[in-house]
Structure formats: C-alpha cells, structure tokens
C-alpha cells in the first residue's frame, strides 16, 4: 500500500503562518455556554479583517522559499490545499504564485479534501518531483475556518497553515521514506456548495471517521516500513481538538512527549487543511538531524495520508532563515467575542 516515487524526495524548505488574534474558549462559553466538562482548546487563532486563506498561504509560502534558498521561478507547481477558498471559482494558487514571483512557468491549483487538502497536495507534489517531471514544487495547507455561531466547532475553528517546498532528497532538510493513504466514503462532516458553515455528525466524526482513518493509515505505513512508534522522535496528527490526537496517538503507541512538539491545537485551534502541516513545521523547528517524524492527516469525507520523514543535517542551517512556528504562536492578541464576530464578518451589514 505504501507509495514511493522512483527518485527520492524531501522537504527543501518550509514555513508557517498564524494570524495575530486569539479568541479564548471562555469567550465563546461566556456567550453560548458550554465548557462544564472543559473546553476543547484553550484558545483559537482568528484572522484579521484583511486576512484570508490567500494572504496566509502567501506568507507561509514566502517563509518556505526563504528556507529553501531557491529562486521563486524554479518552482514548477504552487498548490494550495484549503476548504476556505477566497474565490469559489478562481485558483488561490495563481495569486500565491504571483506574490512569490513564481509565474508564469508554473502549475497553480487548489486542492480540496476537507482537512487533508494540504497533505493531498503534498503527496501529489512528492510524485511530481519523484517522477523527475519537476525539480521543485510548493504546496500549502491553509484555512480560515468558519464555525457556526453557537456550534461546538466555534470553539476550535481556527486559522493558519504551513507551506512546503519539495525537491530532491539530496537537497532536503527532511526526506520522505514513504507515504500511504487510507480513504473511504464517510460523510462525517461536509459543507454543501453555497453554504456558509459546515455540518457535522457529532460523535460520528470520532470513531468511524477520525480515529479509524488515522490509526489505520499510521499503522499500515509503519508496518510496511518496518518501523515502530519508538523509532520516531515526533508524531504529528491532525488536530481538531486537544483530545482526539492525544487519544489516537496513545492508541498507536506514542508517548505524550512524542506528540508534544507537533501539538498546537490548544494554542491556535484547528487550522483545518493547515492543522497537521503546521504541526509538522513546529516539529521541524525543534528537530535534530536523524530524527524521524510521522505525519498523519485526516480529512472528513474521509481519509488520512501518512508520511514518514527523516530529518537531515540541512535543518540546522535553514531553520533560522525564516520565522519559527512558535514566533507566530507567541504573537498573540486576545480579542472578545464581539470583535471576533466583526473580524469573521458574522454580522450581516446589508
């Protein structure tokens, strides 16, 4: 089941982005109640009035380009995975490519698979580079998620993401040992066309959706690679709330320490297509050469992509060419629910 390209591929640059504003979960609780059994996150990130998926993807991609140290016009693909596109029809990728200076000789497209749109693009980019069709491809997983007011997801629906430039293994700061997908038709969460907010299946999003797909993808990949949890320095899972990845990680046999470096959900919420990818960028920020990192995404609908990365010496020199993930996480400006309602344009003005 494992997928490997004919030429070995790795990450040559990566970059994160998280907006400045934070909505504490107590603020949502103050308005809508809830929280008797604790909140699903401590707070979540909120984009400013002038931010959207496109602007966040641009900043993450610029950071990735700085780390890679390549010229923007060497990119042959700029792919953005998101479920919160600025335009329903018109690629985000073209705007990001133009901002980077990667146009015109590049592919540009948007990918959609709920919260695993970003890793979907990552896997495809590994294939594109691995087939030697191109030398470098950029992917981003970014979202500015909308939670319906009063819904459980309003506590967690955050904003942010990360971008990666894939290239030949010999130039990489972490190379991919193999990846694997696990996909079924599971309607746990969706948003119909023209609807503003998604619908979700409550507890149905748990065992048959998140847990089953994550655990099976991870288990299968480790088995085929002949790896066990102890071989990994860090395990990064999709993070819809703080409980799910902790529980899934434990079930897979990972310790809390192995999960810690890639766990951001309590501080920034669920960045949807950006969630597992920004977890990976946080993990790379702290990784040492030789570390193994397991990345497993989850997207509703439903599926998981699992990747096994090995960090190289190049990480040390490239890490500080761009802001660290926690530089953004620490830059926090708490807002109240009213400001949040304004920033997320939840008031109908017309």
């Amino acid at each position: 089941m494992i997928m490997r390209p004919s030429r070995e591929v790795g990450i040559v640059g990566y970059g994160a982005y998280v907006p400045r504003y934070r909505l504490p979960a107590e603020e949502v609780g103050r308005i809508w109640g809830g929280g008797q059994a604790g909140y699903p996150v401590r707070e979540k990130s909120v984009p400013g009035l002038d931010e959207d998926t496109t602007t966040m993807a641009i900043e993450a991609a610029r950071n990735a380009l700085r780390r890679a140290g390549i010229a923007a016009d060497e990119l042959r693909a700029v792919w953005v995975g998101t479920e919160s596109k600025t335009y329903a029809v018109k690629p985000t990728g073209t705007i990001v490519a133009e901002a980077l200076g990667a146009t015109p000789h590049t592919q540009a497209a948007d990918w959609e698979f709920a919260c695993k749109a970003g890793t979907e693009a990552l896997q495809a980019a590994i294939g594109l580079v691995g087939s030697e069709m191109v030398r470098y491809a950029l992917i981003a997983g970014v979202d500015a998620a909308q939670g319906r007011p009063g819904d459980a997801l309003e506590f967690t629906a955050g904003a942010g993401g990360a971008a990666y430039i894939l290239g030949p293994r010999e130039e990489s700061l972490a190379y991919c040992e193999g990846s694997l997908s696990y996909v079924t038709d599971t309607p746990d969460f969706f948003r119909r066309a023209h609807e503003r907010y998604p619908s979700h299946g409550g507890r149905f999003t748990g065992e048959p959706a998140y847990f089953r797909h994550i655990e099976r993808a991870a288990t299968q990949l480790m088995q085929e690679l002949g790896r066990k949890p102890a071989d990994y320095a860090t395990c990064v899972l999709h993070q819809p709330n703080s409980k799910f990845p902790a529980r899934a990680g434990k079930a897979l046999g990972f310790t809390a320490e192995q999960l810690a470096a890639g766990m951001l959900v309590s501080d920034i919420g669920n960045c949807y297509a950006g969630s597992s990818l920004i977890g990976l960028s946080a993990a790379l920020d702290r990784a040492r050469p030789g570390d193994r990192i397991l990345l497993v995404s989850f997207g509703s609908g439903a599926g998981s992509d699992a990747f096994s990365f090995v960090v190289t010496e190049a990480i040390e020199e490239r890490r500080n060419r761009a802001p660290l993930t926690w530089d953004y996480v620490r830059r926090r400006h708490p807002i109240d629910y009213g400001t949040y309602v304004r920033y997320r344009q939840k008031l109908r003005m017309h």
């Binding site: 002038d50 959207d52 496109t54 602007t55 641009i58 600025t86 335009y87 705007i95 901002a99 890490r319 500080n320 802001p323 660290l324 926690w326 530089d327 953004y328 620490r330 830059r331």
Partner: peptide
C-alpha cells in the same frame, strides 16, 4: 474581485 496588495506590520519578534 478581491484586491490584494502590500501593507506593513511591525517586524515580527523572532526567537532566533
């Protein structure tokens, strides 16, 4: 159309 362009923010504080 959504019009994107340059703005400026305080230089991000960086741990490095």
């Amino acid at each position: 159309m959504v019009i994107y362009g340059y703005k400026f923010r305080p230089v991000l504080e960086r741990e490095a």
